[in-house]
Design a protein around this nucleic acid. Sequence first.
DNA 1: CAGAATCCAGGATGATACTG
DNA 2: CAGTATCATCCTGGATTCTG
Lengths: 113, 113
Amino acid sequence: MKKLEHKNCMLSILPVRDTLDVIGGKWKILILISIMEGNHHFREIERSIPNLSTKVLSDQLKDLETNQLISRSVSNGFPVRTAYTLTEHGKTLQKLILEMHNWGVLHRKKIIQ
Amino acid sequence: MKKLEHKNCMLSILPVRDTLDVIGGKWKILILISIMEGNHHFREIERSIPNLSTKVLSDQLKDLETNQLISRSVSNGFPVRTAYTLTEHGKTLQKLILEMHNWGVLHRKKIIQ
DNA sequence: CAGAATCCAGGATGATACTG
DNA sequence: CAGTATCATCCTGGATTCTG
């Protein structure tokens, strides 16, 4: 079985890209972690993450909901009260986030020195 | 121990962000995987990843080298022949990439249905 | 409180041509 | 082959204001 020239590796890559689409970017993981750590309301999440604007938070929450990582529930009182929580599917991300955390720590050690 | 209002979770988040800075974005992981799979020369890597332009590849390779994930060696012949390979540090990413791959597969199943 | 609507700037990305 | 140089473009992200 000969090795191909410039092997095209898109097949093995697509799932990785899917993952990055869903949790990559500047804010998505931060928002997920914030919710995991107990922040459930819009302003709560917003204030827990420095430099996060309302528009960006709003956009990102929609994406996360579309990808079924979080669910949104709205109270019927006034003022309106919403709550964002992780779905079961969202919870499957925790292991991956932990891995990313660990590697980040390792990398910082490696680079700083 | 009372739970804080809008708990600020930046401390637990910084390492995750480091990781995303290093391997996030549209191309970095694809390039790493391409090298892992046996593509070592500039044109080889370029052709293995659809829609990747030479400028972007060049930029990204520099970033990866700066972060000590890959190393670059140049032959003394003509035409010039370069080879990119994973460093030991770069290899520590393989586990994480595998996790991302697995989660991507899981997620696609979840969403498609 | 929860978010939508606008508007805007800067960086990331891309296409193409060129050099050694 | 292995890139660099330029220039165009897209798009994320950010500031601000406004509504229910």
